[in-house]
Design a protein around this nucleic acid. Sequence first.
DNA 1: CACTCGTGGGT
DNA 2: TACCCAAGAGT
Length: 338
Amino acid sequence: MNATVTEPACAETRPVAESPALSLAINAWFVGNARDLPWRRHDFGAWGVLVSEFMLQQTPVNRVIPRLAEWLERWPTPGDLAAVPPGEAVRAWATLGYPRRALWLHSAAVEITQRHGGVVPSDIDELLALSGIGDYTARAVAAFAYGLRHPVVDTNTRRVIARAVAGQAEPAPPSRTRDLDAMGALLPLPRGDAAIFNAGMMELGAVVCTAKNPRCGDCPIQSSCAWRLAGYPAYSGPRKAVQKKFEGSDRQVRGLIMAELRATHHPVTDAEITGLWPDPAQRDRALAELRATHHPVTDAEITGLWPDPAQRDRALAGLLADGLAVATGPGRYTLPHE
DNA sequence: CACTCGTGGGT
DNA sequence: TACCCAAGAGT
């Protein structure tokens, strides 16, 4: 690590890379140009950071911000979330996408409550043991919530390293050890500087060194960027797998069923209702009204969502297998309520 | 490892 | 219009 650079520019593998110039320039830029995002507030807390990281997995910042605020207002601690049924988390997740994350976040809250006394752990391995937390999220929480010195590598960081250090237009396919080593070699020694550098690399990749149409003229490291110095060579590596078309896909059907499930509610028992109000006639009228809008999703409704029976079956089976839907009776489904 | 998993904005 | 892309994780 941190070997002193004694060779001039001809050492092709690492001329600029291990010089501290990169982190110095990026940190200076980040301090002056970082977006004012909620999870960067000093008092945001580890739970808030963890929730934000779950939401930010594959969902853009702008869509996360309002859901995150609602979420933390409703469930200010892991224990608050752990106390409600998982379906409530899925409903509050709304249209952020990939609703399994809501289920996993709920599970993580339960695990934090049970195993860690309701305190978000700071240890990488303990974080990795939580549901829905992988290499990126574990390190992000440790670094951003607790200020610990770990390399944090996301898709932005990988792209910045590929360009600025390796001189390539796009990063090679992700490789855990190689990516962590590459970032680890660039990471400043002081904890605080390391945390800023982790965030700064991500920020640079998010707002300047973007996947398409990078704004190289605004880049704080343009003068040392290996990609620029090489004349912006085009990417020549393996082609990234093209995302399958969403329109008409099983995924779209899942999404439609999920939207229906989010609009439903846990079936209330007669006993619960009896306890709410003394007058039976009034109870029945209120219940009839509720059933018109709040009821388990029925097979008939699902049939109306999509014409292809095979796709409907696959989508529903997938949701049941994932625990995003549960059967509450023959042909009746709701979000998980236990 | 390749594949799957939502949703919506940008170009 | 059809892609492309987005602070990944689990199987």
